[in-house]
Computed example of a mutant assay.
Amino acid sequence: MEPVLVLDQLDKSFGGLTVTYNVSFSVMPGEISAIIGPNGAGKTTLFNQITGNLLPDKGRILFKNEQITGLRPQEIVARGMGRSFQITSIFPEESVLENVRISCLSRRKEVLNPFRNVARFKEATDQAYFILESLGLAKHAERPAFELAHGDQKLLDIGIALGLEPQLLLLDEPTAGMSPDERQLTRDLIKRLWEEFNLTLIFIEHDMDIVFGIAQIVRVLQLGRLLAEGPPEEIRNNPEVITAYLGEEVR
């Protein structure tokens, strides 16, 4: 089986600050994995390189055996990659339904004139409702997105990404700012979405209960370098990872 994503010696610097250095790893189809590390380790910068928001200074990125290094974000999305953001990227004045429907229509290239093809518009609406049902947001479908609680806005951001029908989904700190109860519900939701939508999924997360609860593979960044990667128990007991990030209490 071929990897769905390959990172090959990615470097990125800003001025004299190296943010990622010689990062290489492969992600297999259907894998659910986590990227962890201290603040400033380069996790979001790495996501930005994968999704085309930043151009690596060196190295290459392969997605489904095609080199995507240097492609624009929309070109990468069109190839089957989706992403949610640490700071939500939603249309606050639009309804919850419309946020996801716009994404579904975008996938069908119907955003500029959604009524040109009534069948596709209905199909996109049905798909948007299905996604909202999966996220537990259907009851808020007609509300403006800005009225949602923070946790629900984070879920809506995931819904927008799902509307693009990704094969690979990247989630940047999906539980940031949530209460402990919300984080646990979101952990279960992420696992269910991974199964229900048949995704390959990579997420950045600081909550180790979530990381060790659902990730098959954990990758650890420190100062822009890949410190370790492996199954959760291996990472949990890795002396370098304990010293650099986890601490003894996580074992």
Rank of each mutant, 00 (worst) to 15 (best):
A141E: 05
L132M: 07
A149V: 15
D126H: 05
A119F: 11
F130A: 14
S134Q: 09
R143E: 14
K139V: 12
Q127D: 11
E133H: 07
A119S: 12
E123Q: 13
L135V: 13
H150L: 15
S134K: 05
Y129Q: 07
G136M: 13
H140D: 06
F146R: 09
T125N: 02
A128M: 02
L148A: 11
F121I: 05
E142C: 09
A141P: 02
A149T: 15
E147A: 14
E142Y: 08
I131D: 08
T125V: 03
E147R: 11
G136L: 13
L148S: 10
S134Y: 01
A145M: 06
A124F: 01
L135G: 05
H140S: 12
R120G: 01
F130S: 07
R120Y: 03
A128T: 00
A124W: 00
Y129H: 12
H150I: 15
A149G: 15
Y129W: 10
R120P: 00
P144L: 12
H150Y: 15
K139L: 13
G151L: 15
E133T: 06
L132S: 04
H150M: 15
K122E: 10
I131N: 07
F121E: 07
E123D: 14
Y129V: 13
Y129E: 13
R120T: 04
S134W: 00
Y129M: 14
I131G: 08
Y129D: 07
L137C: 06
D126S: 11
A124Q: 02
A124I: 03
L137D: 02
E133M: 01
R120A: 09
L148Q: 08
A119C: 10
G151V: 14
K139A: 14
R120L: 11
E123K: 03
L148W: 04
T125G: 02
A145F: 03
H150Q: 15
A141M: 08
A128Y: 02
L148H: 07
E142G: 13
L148G: 07
R120N: 07
L135W: 02
S134I: 04
T125L: 07
G151H: 11
A138Y: 01
K139H: 13
E142T: 12
Y129L: 13
A141D: 05
A141K: 04
H150S: 15
L148K: 05
F121S: 05
G136H: 09
L132P: 03
L135P: 02
D126F: 03
S134A: 13
L137V: 06
K122S: 07
H140I: 03
R143M: 14
K139W: 08
A128G: 02
L137N: 03
P144Y: 06
E123G: 06
F130G: 06
E133L: 00
K122L: 07
H140A: 14
F130P: 00
E142K: 08
K122R: 08
D126K: 02
A149W: 15
F121L: 12
G136K: 08
A119R: 11
L132V: 10
K139S: 11
G151D: 14
A145I: 05
F130I: 07
A119M: 08
A128W: 01
T125M: 04
A145S: 12
K139T: 08
A138P: 00
E147H: 12
A128P: 00
L148P: 05
